[in-house]
């Protein structure tokens, strides 16, 4: 019951917390052309751990915004307009906060749980690995 595979099917969180699981899921998403959603999810986690006093942190917030939210990418399409506005305004005012991407990450995570994660568990990529 403690095998990695048992953990992968438990939840999306357990899958992403496992190196091989995250890697395989990434390969699957690359094929489905929505790997940006996973990279965004990890970027949010990485951002939360950054030091707010470090000038790098604002640059990373801007980079995340530019890469995933400002344009019409797959991440932007899955976010609520209010969530995008909130992040845009925070960056404009340079009001950087560790939790500024939390809501966006939650929205992306819910979509991943409902769609990509379920598809992954029945995909040939996963079944072949099993």
């Amino acid at each position: 019951p403690d095998s990695p595979l048992a953990r992968w099917t438990k939840s999306l969180h357990s899958l992403l917390g496992d190196q091989d699981g995250a890697h395989l899921f990434r390969t699957f998403l690359e094929r489905e052309k929505c790997v940006d959603t996973l990279d965004f999810w990890f970027a949010c986690n990485g951002f939360r751990q950054m030091d707010l006093k470090d000038t790098k942190t604002l640059r990373v917030a801007k980079a995340i915004y530019k890469r995933y939210i400002e344009n019409n990418s797959i991440v932007a399409k899955q976010l609520k307009p209010a969530t995008k506005t909130y992040i845009r305004d925070s960056i404009k005012k340079q009001q950087i906060d560790s939790a500024m991407f939390d809501q966006a990450q939650t929205e992306i995570q819910s979509t991943m749980e409902e769609n990509a994660y379920q598809m992954f568990l029945t995909s040939d990529i996963y079944l072949e690995y099993v």
């Binding site: 990279d39 990485g46 980079a63 995340i64």
Partner: peptide, 20 residues
């Protein structure tokens, strides 16, 4: 000075699970 892409990549990598 690091490029934006490098900073973003570094941020993503820092959050990836490590081998136990």
């Amino acid at each position: 000075i690091d490029s934006e892409d490098d900073l973003l990549q570094e941020c993503i990598s820092s959050a990836m699970p490590k081998k136990k």
